[in-house]
């Protein structure tokens, strides 16, 4: 695996959706996340994030969003809206 650049991301966690299962915290390769006092996940070390996507893929509650720094929330990209689906790989 090529070495990833660190600290190029912004992370949003939606506390209302997070159930605090701890999967993201346990398996984050860069130990970016931690469980807060409210039992929900929170960003502890944003600069360490290598944007691997593990937390997003493994969050059962779709509560973590990782974006490139400064990027806006993009428009919906479903095929029904006539856009070319985003190639994720």
């Amino acid at each position: 695996m090529t070495k990833k650049a660190k600290g190029q991301t912004e992370i949003t966690i939606y506390p209302d959706w997070c159930k605090g299962c701890g999967i993201c915290v346990e398996f984050c390769p860069a130990k970016v996340l931690a469980l807060g006092r409210d039992g929900k996940a929170r960003v502890a070390r944003l600069d360490e994030c290598i944007n691997c996507g593990f937390c997003e893929r493994h969050c059962p509650d779709f509560a973590i969003v990782v974006r490139g720094k400064g990027r806006k929330r993009r428009a919906p990209a479903c095929a029904e809206n006539g856009e070319t689906p985003v190639d994720k790989e």
Binding site: D16, W17, C18, K19, G20, C21, G22, I23, N51, C52, G53, E56, R57, C59, P60, D61, F62, A63, I64, V65, V66, R67, G68, R71, R73, R74, P76, A77, C78, V86, K88
Partner: peptide, 28 residues
């Protein structure tokens, strides 16, 4: 690599209550 969660949000029903009913950490 991005767009993973936001993409999912686009496909969820917006008139349905979230978080879903599954237990914390459920694989479903």
């Amino acid at each position: 690599m991005a767009d993973i969660t936001e993409l999912i949000h686009d496909y969820l029903r917006h008139n349905k209550k979230f978080p879903h009913v599954f237990c914390a950490g459920c694989g479903h």
